[in-house]
Nucleic acid binder design. Structure first.
Length: 361
DNA sequence: GGTATCCGTGCTATTACTTCA
DNA sequence: AGTGAAGTAATAGCACGGATA
């Protein structure tokens, strides 16, 4: 198979960079379907990603154009001060079939293309000379292309720029070497799995602070030989996991709470019925003064006992029932509920201490 | 001082991939 | 070997706050 690479659109009049303005026009032209498969093939680590994106665009049809436009606007918006995230160089890739046939054949080849492998031509193109014509402007763009696309996305661009210092003379080199590091990662994985050491270290950092400032992010990334974006994503996902875990714990707690309250309510209702029945059968039975009731000093609630069989106790029991049914609306009564369980917390870290809970009465 | 815009960041939902039972 | 579930890296989109013009 032979790869034919051409700069600009396929029109007869080559205008090296005119296509940048016409990009979307080209893309939407049915006769240029092959042009969708352009730019960055095998040039750097993100060649794979770009190919995947193009493939996704292809498979999802024109419906994705809008989101793509949004993305573009976002990236251009975010990148306009430093560098454009849009590729400065667009390589139009044509796939001449052996029988010289149609675009169908070319798309078939596209489908058969292993995005995880460098195409031979591209592998040779690591130095940039193999893809572009020697006299073309493209070769002078090669470095920039590698550098900026290698950063991956907007946030990496920023991070890389911050790490290297945008205007420093040696930055391109540094960033470029980073990009080539990414090449290895990107080519050898579809999805990175962090090593145990990396995960453990990130976990340790997360224990100290569950968010990162840019400095910490960069330091961590450097230390773990990861991209800052990866560190950022890891922390994001870690926070999400923590929150999810907490939600599960909360849910479990509320469930238990509900069960306990239901059971207690049932019991008190039953007791109340018994007391009323007793009162009706014997109205003068043991009228004890209310002062015999005990009050919990911490929650300021009247403690009821199952052995109390006075009318006053019945009234008290009734109060308890009313209180328990209002626990969701009245915070005070909620806190005062004798069987109110302290809300458990998911503590991922051993050093974390649960908040102080008042002693249950 | 109020307003609009830009930018960075976090959160959430979702996807895509890997691992394991 | 095939499969579904669980775990998780990665992406996209949105909201919000701070900085600046």
């Amino acid at each position: 198979m032979e790869l034919g690479l051409s700069l600009g659109d396929n029109s007869a009049t080559p205008r090296p960079f005119g296509f940048l303005a016409k990009n979307r026009e080209i893309k939407s032209t049915p006769t240029n379907r092959g042009l969708e498969f352009c730019m960055a093939l095998g040039i750097n680590s993100n060649g794979k990603r770009l190919l995947q994106d193009q493939e996704r665009d292809k498979s999802s049809g024109d419906g994705d154009d809008e989101s793509e436009a949004v993305k573009r606007s976002r990236s251009s918006r975010n990148g306009d001060r430093t560098v454009s995230v849009d590729p400065p160089l667009q390589l139009a890739l044509s796939w001449p079939s052996d029988n010289g046939s149609s675009e169908g054949g070319s798309s078939e080849k596209v489908r058969g293309f292993d995005v995880n492998r460098l195409p031979p031509a591209a592998a040779d193109a690591e130095d940039g000379a193999a893809v572009s014509s020697p006299n073309s402007v493209a070769s002078s763009f090669q470095m920039d292309f590698c550098v900026f696309r290698g950063a991956g996305n907007k946030r990496d661009l920023e991070a890389a720029a911050a790490a290297a210092g945008v205007n420093d003379g040696g930055d391109a080199e540094r960033a470029s070497s980073r990009a080539s590091d990414d090449d290895e990662n990107a080519l050898s994985r579809k999805k990175l799995r962090l090593s145990k050491e990396q995960s453990a270290y990130l976990e340790e950092s997360f224990k100290e602070h569950n968010t990162l400032n840019p400095k910490q992010k960069l330091a961590l990334a450097k230390q773990l030989n990861l991209r800052p974006r990866q560190v950022e994503v890891w922390f994001q996902n870690r926070r999400a996991r923590t929150k999810l875990k907490q939600t599960e714990v909360d849910c479990e707690y509320l469930k238990r709470c509900c069960e306990t309250l239901t059971e207690e309510n049932r019991r008190l209702h039953k007791e109340l019925q018994e007391l009323r029945a007793l009162k009706n059968s014997n109205p003068f039975y043991m009228q004890l003064p209310a002062t015999t009731l005990t009050m919990c000093p911490s929650c300021e609630r009247v403690a009821t006992t199952t052995t109390t069989t006075t009318s006053a106790a019945a009234a008290s029991a009734s109060t308890v029932i009313n209180n328990t049914t209002n626990t969701t609306t009245d915070s005070k009564s909620k806190a005062a509920t004798p069987f109110a369980l302290s809300r458990p917390r998911f503590y991922p870290f051993s050093q974390s201490q649960p908040p102080h809970q008042p002693a249950a009465s």
